[in-house]
Amino acid sequence: MSDQSYSAAAPRTSKRLRNTAWTRYLFVLPVILFLLVFIIFPIVYNLILSFQNVTVYNFKGHHAFAGLASYVKTFKDPVFYTALGNSVLFTVLSLVFQFSIGFALALFFNRSFPGRGLMRSLMLLAWMLPVVITASVFQWMLNGDYGVVNYILQSLGIIHEPHSWLSENGTALLSTIVANIWVGIPFNMIILLSGLQGLPEQLYEAAKLDGAGKMLQFRHITLPLMRPTILILLMLGIINTFKVFDMIFIMTAGGPVNSSNVLPIYAYQLSFTKFQFSQGASVSMIMFAILTVLAVIYLRMSSKEEAA
C-alpha cells in the first residue's frame, strides 16, 4: 500500500520499487517453505499412509493402495472405543476443574492486595514445568507404598486404606486427570485474569449504586462481558487437552489394561510399538478430523470476537 503511493509520487524509482514488491515475499518464504515441507507434507503423507497397508515388514518397499482397510480395522477394535471414551472423559473432567478453579482464583487475584502479582506468577510455574517433571512428581506423590497422597487422605479420613492410584483400573485415568488439572489451573487463571482486568470499572460502580450485590454483579456484568474470553478459552482448552500425550504416557502408559488409554497413546502404540504404521495413521487422521471440527469452531469464534 505504502509502496504504491510512494511510486506514484516518484516514478523514477519505480524499477527499484517493483523490485521491492516481490522482495517482500522473501520475508515470509522461509516460514512458508517450512510449513510445506515439515507440516503440510507430513499430514498428506499420513493421509496416504492411512490408505495403504504399511507395517514394519514392508516399510521400505512399494506400498499398494488398501482403501479403507486400516480404518475398518480401527473401527472394529474395542480398544479404539475405550481410548475415545477416555479421551472425552479426560478432556471434559480436566476442563471443568481447570476452568472453575482457574476462574475462582482469577476472581480472587483480580482484587488488589499486597503480593498478589508475585503469587499469581509463582503459580504459573506449574504450567511452565516440562510435563515429564510434573508427571514424575505426581507419580511419586501417588505412589501406593510411600506416597504422600495416601498419607494425607488417610489422616483426613477420606480413605481408609492406601491405594496404588496409578496401577488400579478405577483410579489410573483419574490420577492423570488430577495432574493435568494442576498444570492447567494457572493457565486458565492468567487468561481469565487478563480478561477481567479489561472490564470497565464504571459498570460495577453503577451496579453498586443501584444496590446490586456481588453475586448479582458477577451474574449480570462479569459473566456476560467475559463470554467471548470464556468461550475461546474453553475451545482452546478442549483442543489442547484432547491431544495430551506426555502426562498419561509417563504416568500410566495407558494402563493398566487400557484403563487410561487415550487416542494419542493408542496411535503411538500402533505406530511405534506394534509398527502398524497404516493403522496408527488412521487413528491420527480420526483425531485430526475431530480436532479440525473443533478448530473451525474456534476460528469462527475468535474472528467473531474480533469483529465485535
Binding site: P264, A267, S284, Y298
Partner: peptide, 24 residues
C-alpha cells in the same frame, strides 16, 4: 490464509506429526 494456517497448526497433536516425520 497464512494466518489461519499458523493458528490451525498449533492445534495439531504431536503424535500425528511424529509418525510421518519418523518415516521421512
Amino acid at each position: 490464509l497464512i494466518m489461519i494456517l499458523l493458528l490451525a497448526i498449533q492445534m495439531l497433536p504431536g503424535i500425528m506429526m511424529a509418525m510421518p516425520l519418523f518415516i521421512m
